[in-house]
Amino acid sequence: MRCAYAARQDPDDPLSGLEVGDLPEPETPDGWVRVQVRAASLNHHDLWSLRGVGLPADRLPMILGTDAAGATVDGREVIVHSVIASPGWTGEETLDPKRTLLSELHPGTLAEQVHVPARNVIDKPAGWSFAEAACLPTAYLTAYRMLYGAAGVAPGQRVLVQGAGGGVATAAILLARLGGAHVTVTSRDEAKLERARALGAHDAVASGTRIAPVDAVLETVGEATWAHSLRSLRPGGVIAVAGATSGPAPSADLNRVFFRSLRVIGTTMGTLAELAAVRDAMVAGGLRPVIDSTHRFTDDDEGTTAVRTAFERLASGAAYGKVVLTR
Score class of each variant (00 low, 15 high):
3 C>N: 10
6 A>G: 11
9 Q>F: 04
10 D>C: 03
17 G>R: 09
24 P>F: 01
25 E>F: 04
32 W>S: 13
33 V>Y: 14
35 V>F: 15
35 V>D: 15
35 V>P: 13
36 Q>P: 00
38 R>W: 03
39 A>H: 04
45 H>Y: 10
53 V>I: 10
53 V>C: 01
56 P>F: 06
57 A>P: 00
58 D>G: 02
61 P>S: 09
63 I>R: 15
67 D>C: 13
70 G>P: 09
70 G>R: 12
71 A>N: 13
72 T>H: 08
73 V>W: 14
79 I>D: 11
79 I>S: 10
87 P>S: 09
87 P>N: 01
88 G>F: 06
89 W>C: 00
90 T>D: 14
92 E>T: 00
93 E>M: 11
94 T>C: 02
94 T>L: 07
97 P>K: 13
98 K>F: 02
98 K>G: 00
99 R>Q: 05
99 R>E: 00
100 T>Y: 05
101 L>Y: 05
103 S>I: 08
109 T>V: 02
110 L>K: 04
113 Q>M: 00
115 H>C: 05
121 V>L: 10
128 W>H: 00
131 A>R: 11
132 E>V: 01
136 L>G: 09
139 A>F: 06
143 A>V: 01
143 A>R: 11
153 V>Q: 08
153 V>Y: 03
155 P>K: 15
157 Q>D: 10
160 L>K: 11
161 V>T: 03
162 Q>H: 03
166 G>I: 02
167 G>M: 05
172 A>E: 11
175 L>K: 08
177 R>I: 02
180 G>E: 00
183 V>R: 14
186 T>N: 15
188 R>T: 11
194 E>M: 10
195 R>M: 07
196 A>H: 07
196 A>K: 07
197 R>H: 13
197 R>F: 12
201 A>L: 02
201 A>W: 01
204 A>F: 06
213 P>V: 05
221 V>H: 05
224 A>E: 06
224 A>I: 03
226 W>Q: 13
228 H>R: 07
230 L>H: 14
233 L>T: 02
242 A>L: 05
257 V>C: 10
271 T>S: 14
274 E>L: 02
276 A>L: 04
278 V>N: 11
278 V>K: 15
283 V>I: 04
288 R>K: 12
293 S>G: 11
299 D>R: 14
305 T>L: 15
309 T>H: 08
310 A>K: 11
314 L>H: 10
322 K>N: 12
325 L>G: 02
326 T>M: 03
